[in-house]
Design a protein around this nucleic acid. Structure first.
Lengths: 210, 210, 210, 210
DNA sequence: AATGAATGAGAATTCATTCAT
DNA sequence: AATGAATGAATTCTCATTCAT
């Protein structure tokens, strides 16, 4: 019988509660809420099923906890965007960079979110929208573009469309990578992503300037 | 005893096999493979559970059939893209229009696909990639851009990045709409989509021309 | 769609009713009443499941029909035993030969019967007992042995025990062949059986004579 | 709510795992693998169906476990045969006695085995053959007879045939009892069996000695 | 006589959750 | 805090049987 006390591999400071959360994250990412199995999570965390209920009371609640935990981790990343910037190019680059970082440091978050996108009113989707809104990114983006238009450096167009375009061309790749990588035979995803930021900023900037 | 002959609600011409497929589509779109319930599909199709197995032998196989059916329906739409076009602007507009049409005429397809995107190696994802590749759209797009670059009408840049950008800024909205709509408070989605095509084409064209 | 009219392989005179019976025999022999599948029988007979019910009204009834048919075929074989014989040796050889013939010409009957033996009150078992009794074989055997004892050519012993011994040492092999063949590595079963008759008669005769 | 602690009928010391095994044995003996119902086994064991799967993972595996358990119980019985014996008569009596004891102490084993005999390659049949072979009984029997032939106390004949005859005349009754009892109107089976051992040994010994 | 379609009643198995210790 | 055992309520799938034509 393997308990989680006599193991030597995993970090010793991590207690069972955390290990369950990590295992749950893996399972939910891989299979979604419905496809996930409580048994598998417990086993993968090296604990008894009942302990999972002791800490998290239900599968759904565990799922929420996983999502909560993720938003907690992601928030600082999102918040630092657009700090003290009034230059559109810098701002755009920051936004693009944050999405890229998010996708690379928290790929499971993206996968969880993608699955939830299939259910438009899923709590996670609602929350993601709120988080984005609260981050101030879209607002600030529109403000900068608006100012540019006033100054005449940026041409006239629908700001919302442009904002959507910039966000989707940046986030979109991370979501559609499984398809895009196959279609365009992108093998070195790391390299591709790093080049992507500059390419998107360039394209967008040229697209909007007068 | 309720048979499907004396029903009054559902279309009478459709036979049971088709009605099961339709019901399955609804259920799978709404809840995914794991969340779907065979019982619910049968009930919603107005037939006995056993009949579902008579025709489709298993839940998984029914799921595959639903996907097959969808690709069958979508293929002609995809194929007609880029027919006989050598003008980049026309080509881009066509591509944008096709994606928009796809998303509006087959929203369930998008939802099914989105969920599968969470599992990068899912058969549906692989097939979507193949279909896209076979449609010739990405290839032709790159050819046109490449020609433009040769002629000097289009500036130098990484063609793959640009292709990805154009595809994601078009398809991306349909996938991320549940978030984007909330963030930007887009209420009239229909209107927004129709304007989107032109906005994207404009942005992209300006972004790439010298 | 394969019907049984356009086939060329199977005998043309055999009608569907017979073919169902044959198929059922195979299936029941192979898997027993509970393990048998109506679907499989119909398919193997090359007819529709419903036709099977048209002719035989139920699975159980089909099973009975199979058994009936077998007893019908076996009866003449059993009946001819011990015709006009007053010599013990000849009688014993006849009995042994009949069991051997039965086992070789109707191995499915043996298999069906064996399975039923696990349920002591199964109709087939009851009927097999009745058939054996009615055949007169055990009675006549006892009579001959009894006469021998009276004449002093056969020693005194329990006639029933002897009868059981003779029957089991003959029939027993056919029933236990799957085990016996493995234990004693009997490969040429045909040859073994043919020698078995004489060996049994010899052994038994020597065992009972004074 | 009925738990198995407040029961009064079944033995309290036996734990659920064992009770399931016992219930399964009854059910499988009575109805065979295909005829057995998991529900019935669980009920008869006084436990929840799910617990049965908790311990035995599948119906088939439970069946195997039942058989395993039986071979475990039977092995010591088989092994003690022919210990330190060089006298044929003693040896024969021991063999006959062991089979009789087996049949009387483990009648379910016989019934299970009989049913499996209808499928010649069934695992249980294969294993029964191996167990018999490994027990050394057939080998030792042949050795003793062979020695007797060398010494001239036993006449010349096919040793394999004789071995089969002795085994089948002993085991055969236990297998065919449902028929034999009816034909010969054997009511007091216990008495009949006890006399059977001596009768068989006598018959066989006389049959083989010069 | 013959069939494809349809179904009710199970049957095995699963799974989230709870209990006793 | 931690666990093995236990369970109720599904859930997928099966199967003998019937229906309509």
């Amino acid at each position: 019988m393997r308990t989680n006390r006599d193991n030597n591999g995993p970090p010793p400071a991590e207690d069972n509660k955390q290990r369950i959360l990590q295992a749950a994250l893996r399972e939910f990412t891989e299979r979604g809420l419905d496809g996930a199995r409580v048994e598998r999570i417990a086993e993968s965390a090296g604990v008894n099923k009942a302990l999972l209920y002791y800490y998290y009371s239900s599968k759904e609640n565990l799922f929420s906890s996983v999502i909560d935990e993720h938003f907690r981790m992601i928030l600082p990343l999102i918040r630092k965007t657009l700090e003290d910037t009034s230059d559109p190019e810098t701002a755009l680059r920051q936004v693009a960079a944050v999405y890229a970082e998010l996708s690379q440091r928290h790929p499971e978050f993206i996968r969880l979110l993608v699955r939830e996108l299939a259910q438009p009113d899923s709590p996670m989707v609602v929350r993601a929208a709120e988080t984005m809104k609260e981050s101030g990114v879209p607002g600030q983006l529109r403000r900068l573009l608006s100012e540019g238009q006033a100054k005449g450096t940026i041409r006239e167009f629908d700001l919302r469309q442009a904002a959507v375009s910039f966000i989707t061309m940046n986030l979109g790749y991370f979501i559609m990578a499984p398809i895009v990588d196959r279609v365009l035979q992108i093998d070195d995803r790391k390299q591709f992503i790093s080049e992507r930021i500059q390419a998107n900023v360039d394209l967008f900037l040229r697209g909007i300037t007068t």
